[in-house]
Amino acid sequence: MRVSLSGKLFTVSLISFWYASNIGVLLLNKYLLSNYGFKYPIFLTLCHMMACSMLSYIAIAWMKMVPLQTVRSRVQFVKISSLGLIFCLSVVGGNISLRYLPVSFNQAIGATTPFFTAVFAYVMTLKREGWLTYMALVPVVTGVMIASGGEPSFHLFGFIMCVSATAARALKTVLQGVLLSSEAEKLNSMNLLMYMAPVAVAFLLPASIIMEEDVLGITIQLAREDSTIVWLLLFNSTLAYFVNLTNFLVTKHTSALTLQVLGNAKGAVAVVISILIFRNPVSVTGMLGYSLTVIGVILYSEAKKRNKRERDT
């Protein structure tokens, strides 16, 4: 009984930490990029990826949290690099969107990930789901359309970047299944992050230098005036790594399906907290649209679970 209770307490603590890191990094990104006035989303993403590179190496190579998996061929490295680029674009797009959109609307758009995943899975692998699964995607998309029409802080460029980031996130998930499908090439998410993050850094460093003129000089100047920015960036970047670490650990100690359900609830929690903190205006139409999207995602998850049971029997 004690073992069972301690195991449950550990799982609950893990889920709580996963929620805190996910929502924390989202709100801190919004604060830095919008309220604080640090308008450099590419550089912010670069900091995230540098932290992910270093901390994932420490966790795997030094702390032995999971066995070290090696890259076995040049072809596998190219595949991982492709995933790294798409991962990088999804994070940059999400951070750029936070400059223009409130967290609540950002999360509403992000909830459409299952729609893009289903589309890419069909286009790239010709994998078909049951008709109920596709029907469940209708309220997902309809909800975002309603939320967009009722969003007081709607910004077209921010909307496009957020949709692009959501699509890139879904594309990475599908491509990961296609490119690393053989047993010899499969990597767990922690090892994959360790190899993808340096690739992302290689892409982001020149992009930040070219597109965000003198960002390093401006950051140093800000740090001289007020060291708070240094601690904010360090904490934010570390939190970004813990999002990936806790994501892996929650999946390991529960299941991928549980993670999906918890993720749906997390989005709703993030919306409520962001509205309370940033006090961004929301409309009844916008909240109804977001609620419809969440209901659609839940129905989609249930339909997929039902299809899986039918295939297994």
Rank of each mutant, 00 (worst) to 15 (best):
E185H: 11
K186N: 10
L187M: 15
L187T: 03
S189M: 05
L192M: 05
L193Q: 05
L193S: 04
L193A: 08
M194E: 07
M194N: 11
M194W: 01
M196W: 07
M196I: 06
M196E: 04
A197F: 04
V199S: 05
V199I: 14
A200H: 06
V201I: 02
V201W: 02
A202I: 07
F203I: 03
F203Q: 14
L204C: 09
L204N: 12
L204M: 09
L205R: 15
L205E: 12
S208N: 06
M211A: 13
M211Q: 13
M211I: 12
M211H: 12
E212Q: 14
V215D: 07
G217M: 00
G217A: 04
G217P: 01
I220L: 10
Q221E: 15
L222N: 14
A223E: 03
R224D: 13
E225S: 12
E225M: 13
S227Y: 06
S227F: 00
I229T: 10
I229H: 09
I229Q: 12
W231G: 10
W231I: 06
L232Q: 13
L233N: 08
L234P: 02
L234G: 03
L234K: 08
N236A: 04
N236P: 02
N236Y: 14
L239W: 13
L239M: 15
A240Y: 13
A240V: 02
